[in-house]
Every structure is written in structure tokens, then in C-alpha cells.
Design a protein around this nucleic acid. Structure first.
Lengths: 243, 243
DNA sequence: TTTAGCATTTTGGCATTCCAAAACTCCAAT
DNA sequence: ATTGGAGTTTTGGAATGCCAAAATGCTAAA
């Protein structure tokens, strides 16, 4: 009722550094996300807290917290006996996630139409152009990255923080599956057409159309991912792949 | 490649107890959620890890992990100096969350139509009947609870785990705001009509209509919540309310 | 009365440690 | 070759202690 400093957000003197200083937890969480996406920590791998902590040069305390965060993100799962392992979603789980992601992106597109700037539209269009132009020259990874960035840009344009945040988590969860799926060149033409439709609708700021285009695009992703992973699954069945 | 126990999921001998035994972290997280929803830990309150841990009868280690979980759920926020406090979302943040929640429930309704059983529909309809019948007799809290349960039942019927999970988190985040909003009796008739429309569409298993009805219902919630919280905000402005 | 600054207390981050439970090893019995 | 089980190792859960940074209280100068 009396003593209140409340000048929390003054200039720190340093430009652009008003965020909570990085803790080992955050560093570890970021690093882990990276290790998982790059499959340096492969799906399904069991994790030893001690070993991983040692590898990261930290103690178990912050590592455990980082794992807790990744668990919430769906990248780490705990077995019945509480041993952590890298999540290895089944095809049907990936499918369910993609469906939700579709709804999220459709909403993002719809919201974006109400407030997106010309510059932002131009940025999205630019990504689309690069994807199209580099279709036969870019590496799969580069194409994939551009694709991700394009979607990301649209979601960002929605200006809805919880939506952006939730989308980010689903994205992390689905990254590997979508990357694998993108390796297949088949269906490429359709994907490009869908991208064009999205950019077109967005340019017209047609909320309904943008939403519909994104939803349709993600529905295709469901189909393509399913196909890609089913083939992949069969290929792996020939080896003695541990799950 | 060789040694694999892999009989992880056998009957434990005890019925219905195949889940990882409860850790203090989970217990604490659940308890904290409850304390926050009941406003025993009021919005914006600063939290002392030591005090809270003592109050819960545990050490800081599991409490910190529980706080990390609640942070991911959006119920706890960390200040720039890393001091935890109960989240106190601004009106516009609540609004953004409600918008996402609308999309989630609309999707849930749509998916549900494809697989919902007669019994599940009956359950939803039963909730709706109870709400309607008890409109003038039930306590605001009881009405609210029924309302929540009805929505919950629909989302569950979607059979989409990530969707159910995500919806749950948004629900926790929005619980207090929606509860406050539900205290206002105004707009009650409209709410009931919307519920009827939802049940009606769901009964017909009309995905499009169900989705639309839910989306419309949540849009109303945005409006109502905004009204309720604005009034509430003004009322509090007269006091010397610390934020 | 307000404010600047110093001393004290409180706070969360993190490392370390102990412990019970789970996982693994290895050998004997079938 | 397979199985059963005792003994050992490894594992994550949790408590504790220390530290630097932040918050708070207090005093004195303006």
C-alpha cells in the first residue's frame, strides 16, 4: 500500500537487454531442443540425467528443470518409472497434432488479415517466391527452412501471443516429422500451388479465404506426412529398429 | 538390439493404477493450480519459494519444478529478476486467449461429430438440460461448473489428445476470468440459446454447424468477459488496488 | 519531507548429497 | 537355450547448503 518501487522496466543502459538474464535452465532447454531436432538425441532415446548434465557441463538441478519444460512441450516423455526419453510419437499422434496445428494456422491467417502490414505481406510473399524459385536448386533443408519461416511469419502477423506461443510448441513437436515428410519430392507441385493460394488470399486480406487456404494446406500436410512416414516405417521394419 | 524388457504395460495387480507413482512435483503442481483457481494465491501475488515450500511441507526442489510446469501453463510468471508470481493477465491477453480457445473448441466440435457416441451426446445434452433447468435455482458456481463440464465433454469427444491437452491448459489459464464473467447474470438468455444450438448441431452430428455454434458461443464469451472485467476493473479503480 | 546510499535480509540459481527403486549382471537350475 | 533370482549398479526424487543478486530497512544529508 505504500512502498512500491515499480520502476521495473527502465532502460538498463544496455540496449535491447531488458530480459531476465539467461539461466542455465533456459540455455539447457534451448540446447536440448536443438539436440533433439538435429537427432543428436534420437527419438526414443533414453536419457541419463547425470550423463546429459555432464555433457552440458551443468548439474542435474537445472537439467531436470529443462527436461520438465521439454516435457511440457511434448519433446520429452517420462516412462512409468520416471525415466526420461526423447518423445517418439506414433504416426496417429503426429496426425492428431497436425490437425490441431491446422486449426491454429487457420486462425492465425484469419486474424492476420485484420492487421497485417504491407511489409509483412511482402515478407511472406518473398518467402514464397524464394521457395518457388529455388524449388530445383535449394537443398531439402533450405526449402524446408523457408517453408517454416513462411508459416512462422503468418502466425506472427496474427499478433496473438498465446496463439504464437502454442503454435511454436506444436511446431517443435512436429518438426522432425514434417522435415522427413518434406524430403519426399512428390506432391511438390501441389504444395507450391497451395502456397500461392495462401499468399494470394493474404494479399487480398481475405480472412475467410486465407483461413481456408491454410487449413487446406495443413490437411495436405497430414496426407503427405502420413504417406512419407508409412513408407519410412516400412523401410525401417526391415532393420531391427528399436522403438 | 538384444536386451529389451518391453513388457512395460502389464497389469500391475492393482486395478487402474498403471500410472507413474505420484511425485511431490505433481502433487505440488496440482495443489498450486487449486490454490490459484480458488484465489488462495491471488493473481499478481509474489511467491516466496521457501515459504510456499514450507506451507506445502516439501523442499524447494520439487516446488521449483512444479512452478516451472505452472509457468508453462501460463499460471505463473517470472519477473525480470526471476521472482515468481501468480499470473495476472490483462484484459486484452484474456481476450486473445479466448479467441484461441474458440478455435480449439470449434475444432473439437467438428472432430467430435465424426466419432461421438450416442451416449456421449446424451451426456452433453444432460449437462445442457441441467443448466437450463437450474438456471434460477443453481448457485453461480454450480452453473459455472456445469457449463465447464459440458464444454469439457465435447472436447473429450474429439478423441484428439493434443487438442484435449491444449484445451485443458487454456481452460486453466482462463478459469478465473470466465468464472468472474459468469457471475454476471446478463446475457444469460443468449448463452442458453447458444448452448441449445450447440447441442442441436451435435445431435445431428453436423460438423460444420457444431463448429460454427461453438465458435459463435466463444465469440460471445469474449464480449461478455470483456464487459464483465471492464466493470470489475472500474470498481476496483475506486479502491487503492495494487496490481 | 525527500532522497541518496549503505548495511542487512531475503531471494532464486545451482551444486552436492543421500536414498529408495529400478535396471542390469551373472550364474545356477531346469 | 531359457528361466529365476540374488547381488550389484544405475537411476531419478528430494533435501540441503552455499552464493550472488535483488529487495528491504535504516540513517543521514539536503
Amino acid at each position: 500500500m505504500s512502498k512500491k518501487t515499480d520502476i521495473t522496466d527502465l532502460d538498463t543502459g544496455e540496449l535491447a537487454l531488458a530480459r531476465p538474464r539467461a539461466t542455465l535452465v533456459e540455455v539447457a532447454a534451448d540446447k536440448l531442443r536443438e539436440l533433439i531436432l538435429l537427432e543428436k538425441l534420437p527419438a526414443g532415446a533414453h536419457i541419463s540425467e547425470r550423463d546429459l548434465a555432464a555433457a552440458l557441463g551443468i548439474s542435474r538441478t537445472p537439467l531436470t528443470r529443462a527436461l520438465t519444460i521439454l516435457e511440457q512441450d511434448g519433446l520429452i516423455e517420462y516412462s512409468v518409472t520416471r525415466r526420461p526419453q526423447v518423445a517418439n510419437p506414433r504416426l496417429d499422434e503426429i496426425e492428431q497434432n497436425l490437425i490441431v496445428m491446422g486449426a491454429l494456422e487457420a486462425l492465425a491467417g484469419e486474424l492476420a488479415c485484420a492487421c497485417i502490414t504491407d511489409a509483412e505481406i511482402e515478407q511472406v510473399a518473398e518467402y514464397q517466391r524464394q521457395i518457388e524459385a529455388g524449388d530445383s536448386t535449394l537443398s531439402p533443408l533450405e526449402s524446408f527452412r523457408l517453408d517454416m519461416q513462411m508459416h512462422e511469419a503468418i502466425v506472427q502477423a496474427s499478433r496473438n501471443a498465446p496463439l504464437i506461443d502454442t503454435h511454436l510448441k506444436f511446431n517443435a513437436r512436429l518438426w522432425r516429422a514434417r522435415f522427413q515428410s518434406s524430403q519426399r519430392r512428390s506432391g511438390r507441385g501441389q504444395t507450391l500451388a497451395e502456397h500461392r493460394a495462401i499468399v494470394d488470399a493474404l494479399t487480398r486480406r481475405d480472412a475467410k479465404a486465407t483461413s481456408e487456404a491454410l487449413r487446406h494446406h495443413l490437411a495436405s500436410a497430414v496426407t503427405n506426412t502420413k504417406k512419407a512416414l508409412q513408407e519410412d516405417g516400412k523401410a525401417k521394419d526391415r532393420n531391427t529398429e528399436t522403438e
